[in-house]
Design a protein around this nucleic acid. Structure first.
Lengths: 396, 396
DNA sequence: GATCTTTGTCCTGTGAGTGGAGAAAGTATG
DNA sequence: CATACTTTCTCCACTCACAGGACAAAGATC
């Protein structure tokens, strides 16, 4: 199948495409209400969009007391590929133009194997989705990587946890390979975009999205747009000092947030308390598996193990202290907690909430919801699809 | 004199006004180079601006090898009032439309006396500037207050250090009183705008401007625009925890940055070391004046007093620790240090630099200049004038 | 069947904006 | 000093985006 390569020719067309993406099928009249154009102009622009094939007719809507309207929608054959590369696993998903996930695969993997090995696996997973008949070809792809990215060139820069990726031209290489346009961003930013599009952060202008996985990062959204900073490292909060003179960190400093709480740190702590005999539950799990992960701690906590609960509470307090500072500084309208450790759930959330509400200014916290992400592992891939659709649905 | 009340009628006109404000007198040809309009359209818009009186002809420019061009400039009779209300003093200045300070007054004052008393003094100072013949009337005024402001309504909200101001309709009251349009903002934001317009932050898209005076605040500029947060309290970093379990703070918590370093905290520390006999220099100053201020510490440090230097270094380290976290989070392109304590100068700056470069990520600090503000006490009033000019030079 | 509503199309008028011709006002050159 | 070349600025004709009204189509209500 030949893929659509059309791009909107005007800001009006871009606006309409985004309305159809975010609002689904729509009648001309409904679009007219949202877009402040005369019906004639709207008709012209829609005709042009229909000509490009990006938009198709979608039958008649129910009558609202008069003539029935002709619905339009984004071409249902459009397909985006969303790829979320984490430190220890990859998520690959296919979405339609409305960014609904049609198929989703997840596989363990180690980023440190380097870009070539990882992308081989990504292409393999994309192939499986094709074989499942969900898609014949991709009209665009969004890629998230766990480290800073020079945007919009799509090149990782000095990523601490993925040394072999520094300077690798992800965008260029992969758009060759996949034969479609590509955009690359930090995985945390994509999670924020995912929650913004389809999750808890819909219609919030300014918010923070803290992702706690193997590491810790924070997506920053200002005025509905992801803020990436001067060199693309904005939101890199894992190495903020959480405990003065605290634990040594891989970065060379002491007391970094990531050294005190993250998926990796939590697993280390769990092994330690298990070996010290402080938790029979964790000790049993350690004996069975030979190792422990954050998920084990979550399971132990759910089973009521007080030591596991205490580990989570302790870590949440550390994270909460740092976030409290960021809340005072940034004054967000919403704070989203997500990432691999959301399994730790409400124990973690409660610890963070306590700390933020205690330490931040009342004016900043007075009306600040602090919530868990709603999309789980689909946040990243949805955000990736949104990234590329934002790009493709902008004037060329 | 009747004041100009005209506003630009189109985005093009607004653009031209801002170019003339930031670039001074300009020929049509030069404007054309910056504005991407045909010469004919440019001529039309300029004619309209000349008709409003906002712009006037300004003689002929030197020849560049052909016909000499007719310069235009903003009406030299336009006057803005810039007011910067601090915790312990007020700055009032008059500027022309190009935001050059034509006259500047500073007087000690205590904000806690409340808005009525303070504005009486402000109006009195404005009257003196009028009497000096610098101005007949004001075309607009910008007001900075030392606390969070609900923007753009211009109403202080829950300001910790100025209790009597909560909810006082500054914008409404003062625009009545002065008979011209008014905009109100946080003093820290205005300092950032001042340094952006005429100081070290020219042409920097994303930067932070830390103001250390009686309290501590931080102006945040994203994409050239001041970011104010969801409730207007963004940048309020004075109560971020700097020392876990540290000194008690007026806000009820312990270890707040402001409790450990600010003009007020530094003065307290200075009195203490003087009484303990740790510094003969400070002890002498205390005996003479009966009290000590941050300025005394600065003087003692300049005179080589090691205890004073140590106080500054110690405080700068505390501030630097907090700022290091913000730099990791925000990844600015520039960090400006300003406010009353800039008298502490390079000792303070060195301490902050050391801490930030040590603790923040190399990617965020690699190309990050950390500098003192360039404008001193004119930053606030210049920013205030810029605030109102941004407002007046936007389409009505 | 008559009337009212809603939707969509066609058409014309208006105003924004471009680009070229040419006048005005300079400089450089033989 | 005349000529050629440059730069600036204005005027004018033409194009294009867009609004808004007239009108047709299609349905609801009574």
């Amino acid at each position: 199948m030949r893929r659509m390569t059309a791009r909107p020719a005007s800001a009006h067309q871009a606006r309409l495409l985004k309305l159809l993406r975010d609002g689904g099928p729509n009648s001309r009249a409904q679009l007219g209400d949202q877009v402040d154009l005369s019906r004639s102009k709207l008709a012209v622009e829609l005709h042009r969009l229909l000509d490009t094939g990006l938009v198709v007719a979608d039958g008649l809507a129910a009558s609202r007391g008069g003539r029935r309207s002709h619905n339009v929608r984004l071409n249902p054959r459009l397909r985006f590929l969303g790829v979320d590369i984490g430190a220890t696993s990859v998520d690959v998903a296919v979405t339609n133009a409305e960014l609904e996930v049609l198929g989703h695969l997840n596989q363990p993997m180690d980023v440190r194997e380097g870009p070539v090995a990882v992308f081989e696996q990504v292409l393999d997973m994309a192939g499986k989705l094709k074989a499942a008949g969900l898609v014949e070809g991709f009209d665009g792809a969004g890629i998230g990587v766990p480290g800073p990215v020079r945007f919009p060139e799509g090149v990782p820069v000095a990523p601490p946890i993925m040394p072999g990726w520094d300077g690798f031209p992800v965008r260029e290489a992969l758009s060759q390979e996949l034969g479609c346009p590509i955009m690359v961003d930090n995985d945390v930013n994509l999670m924020a975009m995912g929650e913004q599009h389809a999750g808890v952060a819909r219609n919030v202008a300014d918010f923070l999205c803290v992702k706690i996985g193997t590491g810790i990062g924070c997506g920053i959204v200002v005025g509905g747009q992801v803020y990436r900073g001067t060199t693309g490292s904005a939101g890199d909060i894992g190495h903020i000092q959480a405990v003065p003179g605290g634990r040594p960190c891989a970065c060379g400093n002491r007391g970094c947030l990531e050294a005190h709480f993250s998926g990796a740190a939590l697993a280390r702590d769990a092994v330690q308390v298990a070996q010290q005999g402080l938790s029979t539950d964790l000790a049993a799990r350690l004996a069975t598996n030979g190792t422990l992960t954050a998920a084990d701690v979550a399971a132990a906590a759910t089973a009521g193990d007080t030591t596991a609960l205490e580990l989570i509470r302790e870590g949440g307090t550390r994270v909460g202290e740092v976030i409290a500072g960021l809340v005072s500084f940034f004054n967000p309208g919403l704070l989203v907690i997500g990432g691999g450790v959301t399994g730790l759930g409400h124990t973690l959330l409660a610890a963070i909430r306590t700390q933020v509400y205690r330490q931040s200014l009342p004016l900043a916290t007075g009306n600040l919801p602090i919530v868990l992400g709603e999309l789980g592992s689909t946040a990243g891939v949805t955000g990736a699809a949104r990234l590329i659709s934002d790009h493709l649905f902008s004037p060329a």
